[in-house]
């Protein structure tokens, strides 16, 4: 793997370089002005001028919006009688322009790899993955709500990042993680990183690995029925208001629904975010709803992340970014849920 050395000034130059050829996005730390209505909430399109500022901890919005656009058009069609396309469903022409997302945190980068497991054969997700490069910054500081180390991640991790920046004394060392990352640095005159800095980073990583807890992994071997019937769900479901805030800000919630929209004769079939917190999510055509009660829906979200998903794919479907912990209107804390689950006899 190639490891380079970059000064802050060189980073600015790189951003400028990229924005000439690609669409470059960075976290929007303040509320987005109306001038850029076409960018997903929490992100802003950058033109390379001005320095990149990042907040401690995860970015305000997760990167999933680049892989699961809200909405994604699957097909377009027309209902106009005299239209030559009448009766045809067309796959929309999608931009193949590379998008570079700068400022990604290791937790979010990992979320893309986790989402990739169920979406391995999804053409839309894969197309978005092919055209999206993630330029990440490892975390020097964590928030009190961060728990990536519990979920198998690391604040210094470079997993899933095409370029991973880690701070050093006078700038960054940059690990090139993929061909896409390679393409982003070709043509730039960058020096290789010092051996001492690479070993220093490796040592810091080693320390993180030692500090990380693996207690949670015992959940994977537990009997589902006992976790399902545990008494912890009742009070949790009672407090939960069943909004979709946690699922929509979560980087690893990937459920969707499909719908046709027709406006003045022009139609499109869209895929948009859905949430297991909504009654409509599990409502059958018959009118029966297998998860008709609040508590059932709340339980489903946590058991999916901590039991169903690992049973099927291996890792937990949570990266420990802590966004839901911060933003849940009723302070439902997944860390507490995990501890309660571990305590289930």
């Amino acid at each position: 793997m190639k490891v380079l050395k970059v000064t802050p000034a060189e980073l600015d130059a790189m951003m400028q370089q990229w924005s000439k050829a690609h669409r470059v996005y960075a976290p929007a730390l303040v509320k987005q002005p109306a001038a850029s209505p076409n960018c997903a909430p929490g992100w802003r399109r950058v033109d390379g001028s001005g320095a990149l500022t990042l907040s401690t901890g995860p970015t305000p919005a997760s990167v999933k919006t680049f892989f699961f656009p809200q909405p994604e058009t699957l097909l377009t069609y027309t209902l106009e009688n005299n239209h030559p396309d009448k009766g045809l469903m067309r796959e929309p022409e999608k931009s193949k322009e590379m998008q570079v997302v700068v400022g990604v945190r290791p937790c979010d980068a990992r979320s893309v790899l986790l989402n990739n497991l169920p979406y391995q054969e999804d053409p839309f997700f894969q197309a978005n993955r092919r055209r999206t490069a993630l330029v990440g910054f490892t975390c020097d500081q964590s928030l009190s709500t961060c728990f990536c180390t519990q979920m198998g991640g690391s604040p210094l991790g470079s997993e899933g990042l095409d370029l991973a920046f880690s701070r050093t004394q006078d700038g960054f060392i940059v690990e090139v993680g993929s061909a896409k990352g390679e393409a982003l640095v070709t043509g730039l005159d960058l020096a290789p990183a010092d051996e001492s800095e690479i070993t220093a980073l490796a040592a810091r990583r080693q320390k993180e690995v030692k500090a990380s807890s693996t207690e949670l992994d015992t959940l994977k071997g537990r009997e589902l029925g006992k976790l399902y019937d545990a008494p912890l769900w009742q009070p949790l479901g009672e407090s939960c208001i069943n909004c979709g805030a946690c699922t929509f800000i979560c980087p690893t919630c990937y459920c969707f629904d499909i719908q046709d929209e027709v406006v003045r004769g022009q139609g499109r079939r869209i895929r948009y975010w859905d949430s297991c917190m909504f009654p409509l999510y599990s409502l059958h055509t018959s009118g029966h709803n297998p998860r008709g009660q609040k508590v059932q829906r709340t339980r489903n979200r946590f058991l999916h992340k901590l039991k169903y998903f690992p049973d099927r794919f291996g890792p937990f479907s949570c990266v420990g970014c802590g966004r839901c912990v911060q933003d849940c209107p009723v302070n439902i804390d997944i860390r507490e849920v995990m501890n309660d689950l571990l305590a289930v006899e």
Partner: peptide, 20 residues
């Protein structure tokens, strides 16, 4: 109108406002 479009442009349709 500018205020309205800007204010609501960041909505993610989580319906927390409705459910609370």
């Amino acid at each position: 109108w500018a205020w309205f479009t800007e204010e609501f442009s960041t909505c993610i349709r989580c319906y927390a406002c409705r459910n609370a």
